[in-house]
Amino acid sequence: MPRILLVDDEPNIVLALEFLMKKEGYETFTADDGEKALEAIREHQPDLVILDLMMPKLDGYEVCQRVRSDPACKNTVIVMLTAKGREVEREKGLAMGADLYITKPFSTREVVEKVRGLLSETSAP
């Protein structure tokens, strides 16, 4: 069963995402800031992380970079979730090593489908 880590400082968004992912049958963990996200990643070794960019203490970019520099987590899929809609931010996110960049507010179905697609890609080989 794929494990998913949900990181956002907005509890309501986390709540919605958790509901969706659980319904898909994924095992979920949550964190509400960057530092806790890193801890959770080390502890639970999730297959996929949905990461908000604007967070207290450690922002999403930083978390993404750390994850990418850690060989143990090199297969972790990272989906960035952000209210910053500008093209520059998007490119920056992808350059940092994110696999997907989703702008808030998002369509729940789309998120679910994309997450499903990403997980099947990585688990296929």
Partner: peptide, 25 residues
């Protein structure tokens, strides 16, 4: 404008996501 849009998007995200869930489920 950028900041405003960020501040607006956050509650909007919750509202949209939750309403879609309520709608679909």
């Amino acid at each position: 404008v950028n900041t405003i849009s960020h501040e607006l998007r956050t509650p909007l995200t919750s509202i949209r996501a939750l309403s879609e869930i309520v709608h679909d489920e």
